[in-house]
Design a protein around this nucleic acid. Structure first.
Lengths: 222, 222
DNA sequence: AGGTTAGCGATTGTTGAACAATCAATCGAG
DNA sequence: CTCGATTGATTGTTCAACAATCGCTAACCT
C-alpha cells in the first residue's frame, strides 16, 4: 500500500494546508460565499501567510475557492450556469468514454468496487459515503478513456460538483436513486453492450441534472 | 471590447511575471528541460522570489513547467504519451463540439477570422503566425460547445502542444497543410453539414497526429 | 435631508532577509 | 576503483515590514 489516508499530503506544508482546507470544504464546515481571512486562517492552520497563499492558489485552480483581487479569497459558490456546464461536459465525456472503451478495461474494476461500496454504504445509511462512492464510479468511467488530461479535468469538475452538493441538504434524496442505476450501467458494460450502457448513462445524467437544478433553484430563490 | 492584448495581465505582478514567462516559452527562448533558477529568474524579471514562485505555480498548473520538490522547476518536455493523449482528447472534444453545434453559432465568426488570418500569414510566409491562427481556429471549434470548462481544458492542451511544436524545427511543414483543411471544415460547417465537417476534422486530426508523432520520434531518438 | 466626497482603517500585495531542509557533487578513506 | 561523508548550493518556509487598494464612515455641500 503506497499511500495511506494521512500520508498522501506529506509533500510540502502548503500541500498539507490545502488538503486540510479541502476536507473542511467537502465536509461543509466552510460555507460557500464565506470569506477566508489570510491572517485568521494562517494562524488557525499554523502556517505562515505566504504558505497559506500558495495553498489558496492551489484550491483556486481547483475551483474550490475564488480569488477577488484586493478583497480576499472566498469559498466558491457554484452557479447554476456552472452546474449545467458541468453536466454537459459529463454527458459528453462519460458517455463517449463508455461507448468507445474496450472490454475488460482495468478501470472496470474500479467501477465494480465503487458500486459495491455504494451499496454497502446505502445499507448502512451513510449517504455522504454513498455520494463519494458514486463519484468514484463516474471517475472510473472517465478513466476508461485512458487520458490523463480528461482525468484531471474530471477531478476538478467533481470537486466543484461536490461543493454544490454540500449546498443542498438531503443527501439521501440526492444519492439514493443512483446506486442501482450505476449497477445497471456496470452490468451492461460488462456484457459488452457499451452503446446500451452509454445510453442508460445519458438518461441517468439528464435526470440527475434536472434533480439538482431543481433542488438548487428551490433552495436559492435569489 | 473590454480587454486589449496588453492590458489583460494588469492584475498582479505574479500574473505579469507569468505572462512574460509564457511568451518566452512559446517563443522558444526557454528550451524544454531547462531548469529555471528562482533567484536568477526573479532578478531577471524584476520580481521577488516569493512572487515568482506564485508565477511558477500558475505555469505549473498550465503544464508548461514541471516542479520537482527540492530540485526546482523545469520547462516541461512534452512526452510522446502526452501528445497522443492530447490528440485523443482533441478528437473527442472538437469533433463532438462540431457535430452537435447549432448552426450560425457566434463562435463561427472566430473560426472564419482564424482561417482568413492563417491564409494571410501563409501568403506572408510567416509560419509561426500560421500556427497561431490554426490553433485559434480549433479553439473556436471548442467554443461551439459553449462550455467554460472545455474552453479552459483546451487552453491548457494548446499550451502544451505549442511547447511540443517549439521542439520541432520546420514550422512550414507542420502548419502549411492545415490551412486549406481548416477552410474546408469551415465551409462544410457553414452549409449545415456538421456531421461531414466533423468527419473531415477527425481525419485531419489523425493525420496531424501522425505527422507530429513521426517528427517527434525522428527528432528525439533517445 | 439627501447625496457626494474625503479620509480612515483594515486587508491584501509584494518585498527582502533569514534560517531550515534537502539534494547533488566533490573529496577522501579504504 | 568503490563507497561514504562533507560541503555547497538551491529550494522550502517563516517573519516582519511597507505599499497598494478597497469598503466604510463621517463630514461636507447643495
Amino acid at each position: 500500500m503506497a499511500q495511506l489516508d494521512e500520508a498522501e499530503d506529506s509533500n510540502s506544508r502548503a500541500d498539507q494546508a490545502a488538503e486540510r482546507l479541502r476536507r473542511l470544504l467537502i465536509a461543509g464546515d466552510l460555507v460557500p460565499g464565506q470569506r477566508l481571512s489570510e491572517t485568521a486562517v494562517s494562524e488557525r492552520l499554523g502556517v505562515s501567510r505566504n504558505t497559506l497563499r500558495e495553498a489558496f492558489r492551489m484550491l483556486t485552480h481547483e475551483r474550490l475557492l475564488v480569488h477577488k483581487p484586493h478583497a480576499g479569497v472566498f469559498v466558491a459558490v457554484p452557479s447554476l450556469a456552472s452546474i449545467i456546464d458541468i453536466y454537459r461536459v459529463r454527458r459528453m465525456i462519460e458517455c463517449q468514454a463508455l461507448r468507445s472503451s474496450p472490454a475488460r478495461h482495468p478501470a472496470s474494476r474500479r467501477m465494480r468496487a465503487a458500486v459495491e461500496s455504494a451499496q454497502a454504504s446505502r445499507d448502512a445509511d451513510n449517504w455522504v459515503a454513498v455520494g463519494t462512492a458514486n463519484m468514484e464510479f463516474h471517475s472510473a468511467i472517465v478513466a476508461l478513456a485512458d487520458s490523463d488530461h480528461l482525468d484531471r479535468l474530471y477531478a476538478n469538475i467533481s470537486a466543484e460538483l461536490r461543493l454544490a452538493f454540500g449546498l443542498l441538504d438531503d443527501p439521501e434524496y440526492l444519492h439514493r436513486p443512483y446506486v442501482d442505476r450505476n449497477a445497471a450501467v456496470l452490468a451492461l458494460y460488462l456484457t459488452g453492450d457499451t452503446a446500451g450502457a452509454a445510453s442508460v448513462l445519458e438518461d441517468y445524467l439528464l435526470l440527475s441534472e434536472r434533480t439538482i437544478v431543481a433542488a438548487y433553484a428551490r433552495q436559492l430563490p435569489a
